[in-house]
Structures are given as C-alpha cells and as structure tokens.
C-alpha cells in the first residue's frame, strides 16, 4: 500500500478538511500517514491544497510530485495539477466550478457537480464531502461505512452536521460507483 493524493480548491471549500479525513482513514486502516498542507500567501484568496500520503511503511517524503490521485474542486487546481497525476491514477473534478474536460486520457476521471449535489443534500458547504465520497468510490480505498464513521467522530462537537455530510458523502460515492 502506497498512495499519494493531492486535494485542491480555493480557501473555504474545505479541501484541508477532507484531506484530514483521508489521513484519518489511512491511520484507521492501520497505515502510516502524512498530511501536508501547502501554506503561504497562496492560501489567501487563492488556491489551497494539501497532500496526503498513505503507506504501509514509514512515510519518507510527505510531498508528492506525481500523485496517484487528485481531487480538484476548482479550475485553477485542475490546471495546476492535472499533468502531474500518475498514469492510471484517479482525478475527481467538481464540474460545478470547472467548465472544461480533463485533457488526460490515461487516467480515470470522475466528474461530479459537487456544489449542486451538496445543495440538494441540504448544505451548500458539503461539496467537499461529495468529492471525497466520489474519490473513495472511484478508488475503492475503503468501504463507505468506515469513512462515515470517521466523519461522525470528527463532527462529534457539531452533531447537527453529521447527517447532511453523510448524505453528501454517499451521493458522491454512489455517483462514482456508477461510473
């Protein structure tokens, strides 16, 4: 087991949060993990991203030049990282904010209108969860129940948010499974 995943969007879309959930998932599965945010002026009003590495051995470099997976929640993120994804990797894109197709044809692509689905689920803010669900569905990294459980634990202090986020995760997951 060795996976490098980049998650990117703009500030406020919750990419760091779904990155943390992914890292917690890896830890829960018994792996070593690192979660590394890009930090700096670019996080002010610009793009925001983090890298998660999940490995069955101690993680060396916490950064990734050629990730196995990419979740792009907005257009600049796709522009920035598309070319670096490994062959046969997985790219999840948020078509609500990305008005072009993925150019690569050697990767698995999942298109999700994350913002619209999130609104249907009851919270405009849950687009990140839709994308995470789609990524889990597309990669088969774990089963959905495990992710839901981790999310419930992370939201223990805000229980009112659990249901809508579970819904968003599931919608994304099912959409990707249908691909």
């Amino acid at each position: 087991m060795y996976k490098e995943i980049i998650l990117a969007g703009f500030g406020g879309q919750g990419v760091l949060l779904i990155g943390k959930l992914l890292a917690k998932l890896g830890l829960e599965m018994g792996n070593e993990v690192t979660w590394m945010p890009a930090y700096g002026p670019e996080m002010r009003g610009g793009t925001c991203n983090c890298t998660v590495v999940i490995s069955d051995k101690p993680v060396g470099s916490p950064m990734s030049k050629h990730p196995h997976g990419l979740i792009a929640l907005n257009l600049p993120s796709l522009d920035k990282f598309e070319d670096f994804v490994r062959k046969d990797g997985v790219i999840v894109i948020n078509t609500s904010l990305i008005n072009r197709k993925v150019k690569r044809n050697d990767v698995k692509v999942v298109e999700v209108p994350a913002n619209e689905i999130a609104i249907e689920c009851g919270s405009a803010k849950a687009g990140n969860m839709v994308a995470l669900g789609a990524f889990i569905g597309a990669t088969g990294l774990s089963d959905l129940e495990m992710v839901k459980e981790i999310l419930s634990k992370s939201l223990a202090s805000k229980p009112q948010l659990i249901e809508v986020n579970h819904k968003a995760l599931t919608r994304g997951y099912e959409l990707a499974k249908g691909v």
């Binding site: 070593e32 690192t34 979660w35 590394m36 993680v59 916490p62």
Partner: peptide
Amino acid sequence: DGLIGQMMEP
C-alpha cells in the same frame, strides 16, 4: 522547518 511544523502525522 515548515514541513515538520505544518505536516500532520500520528
């Protein structure tokens, strides 16, 4: 360095 400070690990 910034990596050690910003990175999350168990």
